[in-house]
Design a binder for these strands. Structure first.
Lengths: 339, 339
DNA sequence: GGTCGGAGCTGCAACGATTAGGCAAACGTT
DNA sequence: AACGTTTGCCTAATCGTTGCAGCTCCGACC
């Protein structure tokens, strides 16, 4: 109900005239007609169909973002960056949670393709040696050929531009910070097995330890990106002495888990041991966690901007990788250690 | 590119045949033709236009959710509930951040109306005596007349069904818990001024205090829903002795702020003072905060289900209010007090 | 006074998909 | 050979919007 046709009829004008009034074309319209159309639209509660408009204009003004889990603050900050840019440009954000499953990612990408999204932003990290990766890459290519932009927010071979922070450098920097504070035996709690992000952060840690000639005292233990994993990993660390000088968790949430495990074991932080994370989520501020701030909001915002600014037909510039800078945030969970 | 027409041409069949193959009509199709069409669709990377389909089927399979800020875990949990149900039903979630601004809320509602969303979920709380409320209510009514369902997740006079937790009862219950632990002088850190949610939670607190004959020792101080507000309010509390026996913050994040202010002032929790929050966000678990668990995920999920299950034309059942139950979660920031 | 030009409006095709009805082959059966 | 059934074609309409081509006035200019 209340289509343009009805507005036109109510105003006693042709459909095309109503159309031109309601979205200001350059075509001249008399003030009287204009007023009549506007009044009719108002009276009927006219709502222009973005669907029909999208069909003819070949632009849906829809923007897709694929996150692992929007409840995870890492992703919600990204989503916020995306949505702010999208909204300001008159676009609407389509959100999908893919729970780190490549198959779901493929499925949701296809769906967003069906909606003729202007672009799709991949916020989640991929897996090393993912058997489904080729299928995803193919789906991305098909979408691109159709004029749908794809942007990945993590280093990942999707055949699309990457806008990201340097996870590896972030891990390197936080490690370097601990080293420069005098820590020697540093343990690294890894992310979930198989993820590219896990790999990168561990490599950053190991590279720094190696550069500092501390490769022997570097210790990597399996963990995860959540509180429970950080907690459990730290418990294991405590159970098998000697305790390291410092613990770096693969992300902030795991670091908070580590912090709590240490507190429960009555091990003083940062007196006996320093703890650091990566991401600088809001919770890091709450618990005074030393961490590395990743430009998550900017990543989302810039990805959205890239999609909206690049002409639909234009070359997506497949190979480009943009690295946004991170920043060390020293707080209270790390302290200098006199060796 | 790659419309149904092209698939049909590539397969050497009529468009209607291709259509029937690709979305299984009752019309009989030979296996050979079917295979040929599917192969052609596959080869061309055919992606059925959800836009065109929505236009003719009069169902966009789009579901809108309006949150204040997706970064706020309160809302991201709701959004997750919505998206899970939507995705399972083959719908796509449209997300918008409205930053607690009614004007933006109206604007985004109109936009989702333009996209012919099956429904729009209002997750944010409104304001008391909001001058823009009537405009919003009118917009909601127009949307409903158009067959778009609206659901509010907070008690709010939008003229649409409400699916919510009883904020006031939650506040009452957490207060009662503290009272039953022996606390007498309890301070309540309020939410942001003017919000309906703020009002409800304060009323719950006051009602319980009154019921316990503790109205005189009840103390309400202005605060907010964020860490900084909780921190600042607690600082003010500390600056003006006597310190209460317990602090209840309007939500968990403010409670964490309170916790940190107390720690900085070297006031032992729960030894000298108990602290509690409301919401049971993930951070509450991290810091061992006693709180009330609100069924946020279920609210989102149930709202989405309501929208998808109710026939587009059917009566929305405007007046109904569904209350989902909350649950007290005692943790380590509250303790019995011998008086 | 005829033509030009522009203002102001109309009508039509197109976007991509769905659906229904009518019809025509091809095929097997009797 | 007559018959029914299967299978697929074609045509037309529909959804709501847009943009283009064209039409009709009317005043102005030479």
């Amino acid at each position: 109900m209340s289509s343009l046709v009805e507005v036109a009829r109510a105003a006693g004008v042709a459909v095309s005239t109503a159309s031109r009034v309601l979205n200001g074309s350059s075509h001249p319209i008399s003030a009287a007609t204009r007023a009549r159309v506007i009044a009719a639209a108002e009276r009927l509660g006219y709502s222009p169909s973005a669907l029909a408009r999208a069909l003819v204009s070949r632009s849906s003004r829809l923007l897709g973002v694929l996150v692992s889990d929007i409840v995870n603050p890492y992703f919600s900050v990204i989503a916020r960056g995306v949505d702010d840019v999208a909204t300001r440009a008159g676009y609407v954000t389509m959100l999908s949670n893919v729970d780190r499953r490549t198959a779901t990612e493929i499925n949701r990408l296809q769906t967003m393709r069906n909606y003729r999204a202007a672009g799709v932003i991949f916020a989640g990290s991929g897996y090393v040696d993912d058997p489904e990766a080729p299928t995803l890459v193919k789906a991305v290519r098909q979408a691109q050929e159709q004029g749908i932009h794809a942007v990945s927010l993590t280093v990942r071979d999707l055949g699309c531009p990457v806008i990201t922070a340097d996870s590896q450098a972030a891990a390197y920097d936080i490690t370097d910070h601990l080293v420069s504070l005098g820590h020697r035996r540093i343990a690294f709690i890894e992310g979930p097995p198989g993820m590219i992000a896990t790999h990168q952060r561990r490599e950053g840690f190991l590279a720094c330890m190696s550069d500092a000639d501390l490769a022997e005292t570097a210790r990597c233990i399996p963990g995860g990106f959540d509180y429970e994993a950080g907690h459990a990993a730290t418990m294991r660390l405590i159970a098998r002495p000697p305790l390291p000088d410092a613990i770096i968790a693969a992300n902030d949430e795991a670091a908070v888990g580590a912090l709590n495990a240490l507190r429960q074991a009555r091990i003083d932080v940062p007196g006996e041991i320093s703890v650091a994370g990566i991401d600088d989520l809001r919770v890091a501020q709450f618990v005074g966690l030393t961490t590395v701030s990743l430009p998550l909001y900017e990543m989302g915002a810039m990805a959205a901007r890239h999609i909206l600014d690049t002409a639909p037909g234009a070359d997506t510039g497949d190979a480009t990788t943009t690295i946004l800078s991170h920043r060390l945030i020293p707080r209270e969970t790390t302290a200098r250690r006199s060796s």
